[in-house]
Design a protein around this nucleic acid. Structure first.
Length: 109
DNA sequence: ACTCTGACGGAAT
DNA sequence: GATTCCGCCAGAG
C-alpha cells in the first residue's frame, strides 16, 4: 500500500509544517525529509510560495538550513516573518538569523 | 514535450 | 566561512 502520493507531496509537506509547535522552527530539508521527500527541499519552498492565505499553515515557522529567512524578493516579507517568530519567543541574530541549535523543531520534544 | 526558474540542501573545493 | 557544482522536482511560458 503505502499510497501512491502522486501529487500529494504538497499535502504532506503542509501536514509536517502543521506539526511544528509554537516557539519552534523547521528547515526545508527537515520538513522535506519528514514528508518523505528528503532530497526535495526545493519543492517545500515552491509549495509554501504558492500557499494561499486561507491556509492554516504556519509557513513563518519554516526557514532554510542556515536558520535564516529566505528572501522571496520582497524584503518586507522576511521582516514580517521575523517579527512573527519573535512573537513566538524566538530570538534572532543581527543578520536576521536564529539559533537552530535552540529553536529547531524536534519530534522528541 | 522542452526550457528556465525557484522560500533549498549538501558535499566538495 | 565563502564559493561552486550538483541533485531534485514542480509551475509557468
Amino acid at each position: 500500500m503505502e499510497s501512491k502520493d502522486e501529487s500529494g507531496n504538497a499535502a504532506k509537506l503542509l501536514a509536517v509544517v502543521l506539526q511544528i509547535p509554537k516557539g519552534s522552527v523547521g528547515t526545508y530539508g527537515q520538513i522535506a525529509k519528514l514528508a518523505g521527500l528528503s532530497r526535495n527541499a526545493r519543492q517545500v519552498g515552491t509549495v509554501l510560495n504558492r500557499l494561499p492565505e486561507d491556509s492554516d499553515v504556519p509557513w513563518h515557522r519554516v526557514v532554510n538550513a542556515q536558520g535564516k529567512i529566505s528572501d522571496r524578493g520582497d524584503g518586507v516579507f522576511a521582516g514580517l516573518q521575523r517579527q512573527m517568530l519573535e512573537s513566538e519567543g524566538i530570538e534572532f541574530d543581527d543578520d536576521s538569523k536564529l539559533n537552530l541549535s535552540v529553536h529547531q523543531w524536534r519530534e522528541c520534544d
